[in-house]
Design a protein around this nucleic acid. Structure first.
Lengths: 338, 338
DNA sequence: ACTGCTTCCGAAAACGATTACGGTCTTATA
DNA sequence: TATAAGACCGTAATCGTTTTCGGAAGCAGT
């Protein structure tokens, strides 16, 4: 490992000068700076993370917290990988690195986050899979850590957030189904206590009411966030009587199982039951193609990063004037399922 | 932020004693230790990561390197999340944390890794998506960083690795298809320069040869690792004449598109063309159900972590006698696709 | 009372970087 | 020429830990 000491010895100058040269400080001779940069490149010098962050009090890394385990958030990994990519394009411009903070499925997320922030691991945090009431918000607020969340929560400590437009999705989906003649529309509730379930269901109720319809509470179905969960809930829906003539779901990772479950139960998707969901890579390759809502995940990531930077004191000058709460629009892809 | 200083002042003892008490060193009075533990809990003290790792020369974190972007590795969906979960159950027993090192799609993976290790970010690394020749191995070896890879490579620096048994998969799949009467079997090559493509294809050739058959080089198809890629390659396969009567693929993230592509081309999967692939959450919910190879991802993660620990000096005592190279078996799930 | 042995704890030196401060050397100006 | 200003660089403090070393206190044995 070559440290700043070795580099300084090699160049026969002091470590102070080396550091200043590398960090672009003003008071260093142009020629000296050139030599330092060159030598650093040649010797493969990279400042030690611990030393630097101990001194500076910041680490230069942004953490994206997510939970591991077979039953992941409401999204698949392809979802996050795309979002990450967007986040990174912004962060890299500021020499910030993104790492995923992986909370094990058998550790309490709150405790995990507490441990992570107390250790000073990341300068800023991105939260996802926000719950109806999410204590993590208060934790980060209390520790004064800049953060943003992908998803709203009833808990609000004034932080920025970006959330998908589940209300808009509810409006468009319900309108579309009502227009097509459906009178009994069911929904599939996302698992756990995710806030988006409430947001979505509430808006569905409102829109239905505008048409003189109601959301049958018996037609709010619960499903595990997996293909198997989709298969199971399809059977449950199929066996109900009365059975809803259409289903809207906000979770995209169970739709293949759902289709198969309906088919096996003798209920043809798109014919016997209309289905509207969220985009997933498989969505358009199902038969019938899923009518679904999509968005640019990369752009979402970019926005997430920009809004995050706007609340980090050292960077916010670049991103003033950003709105702090964003409802991210989704667009409808018309399939033949509903 | 409460540091060790505050804690020591609060207890009116020296920071040295506090540190020793917290780290379970021998020479500290039982009563003193109790008081320290209690106060640490009360004040919410957690040792600062930077200070600690600067002194100790190790960070207590293991990095799992992966590339971000919409076209992820060779794996889809819940794959990594499940592996992570296994890795963590082992690491957490040693108070090690797992983070995902996210290499942006527009940064060179080698440069990224170099930067990361030089910074001293992680004590050990897990690599995935190994290439035919993978310079990252030499890099880590040179820097003397303990690591393991999920996947083999021609590049070998004596590190442990675990790889899925693609050769066994080739054997079982080819035998099965030959037994069913297939004489012209095609394969879909995974994208890029992943080593597994070579391993798999080579073994396919050998097994076919044992039956007096050959792998038609024109029937080795290339596909982008996405559902769209699956759709496209299905059309390409369908339009060939002669057309293979069976297809084996090692990439699981394009199978829905593949099915749909075949159907749209008028080639019925499982009837007009046999398909054998890798398990994915959707596999069993396709029609016909995919005949595929599966494994316990969580167990794979556990093994990965154990073998990694066996090459980290401070931990290896716990895991001696581990074989250093593992071919991880997969089991066949009989579907009706082939 | 002296020595030797424990047991416990404090003092202080690391770890590798950044940065405030001050010193030296050059150059410009009176 | 003397002096002030500016450019450049070295010294040393600092961040929060861990860990080595040695000292103090207590006790037992002679």
């Amino acid at each position: 490992m070559t440290g700043i000491r070795q580099l300084a010895d090699y160049l026969d100058i002091s470590i102070g000068t080396v550091s200043r040269a590398l960090n672009g400080k003003a008071d260093v001779n142009a020629e000296t700076r050139r030599r330092v940069l060159e030598a650093a490149e040649k010797l493969g010098y990279v400042p030690n993370q611990s030393g630097r962050s101990l001194r500076k009090g910041s680490t230069g890394v942004v953490g994206f917290m997510m939970q591991t385990g077979p039953e992941i958030n409401s999204q698949g990994d392809a979802f996050f990988m795309s979002v990450f990519d967007g986040v990174q394009t912004v962060l890299s411009r500021h020499k910030l690195d993104l790492v995923a903070l992986l909370c094990s499925s058998n550790e309490d997320p709150y405790a995990y986050l507490q441990r992570t922030v107390a250790r000073g691991f990341a300068d800023a945090i991105i939260l996802s899979a926000t719950r109806r009431n999410d204590a993590r918000f208060e934790l980060l607020h209390r520790h004064n850590i800049p953060f943003i969340s992908l998803g709203r929560s009833l808990t609000d400590v004034g932080q920025p957030w970006i959330d998908l437009d589940f209300e808009g999705m509810a409006e468009v989906a319900i309108e579309r189904l009502v227009k097509a003649g459906h009178r009994d529309i069911g929904i599939i509730w996302p698992h756990g206590d995710l806030n988006l379930g409430y947001v979505f269901a509430d808006r569905c109720r409102e829109v239905l009411a505008e048409h003189g319809l109601t959301l049958n509470e018996d037609h709010i179905f619960r499903a595990k966030p997996s293909e198997a969960g989709g298969y199971a809930v399809a059977h449950e829906i199929a066996s109900r009587s009365p059975r809803p003539s259409a289903i809207v779901l906000v979770n995209e990772i169970l739709v293949t199982g759902l289709y198969k479950g309906f088919e096996d139960a003798g209920v043809k998707p798109g014919k016997d039951i209309a289905i509207i969901g969220r985009y997933s890579p498989q969505a358009q390759y199902l038969s019938p193609a899923l009518t679904c809502f999509t968005l640019s995940l990369r752009d979402l990531g970019i926005s997430l990063a920009e809004h995050l930077l706007s609340v980090i004191p050292d960077y916010q000058s670049h991103y003033v004037g950003q709105t702090s709460r964003v409802i991210w629009p989704m667009t409808l892809i018309e399939g033949t399922s509903g």
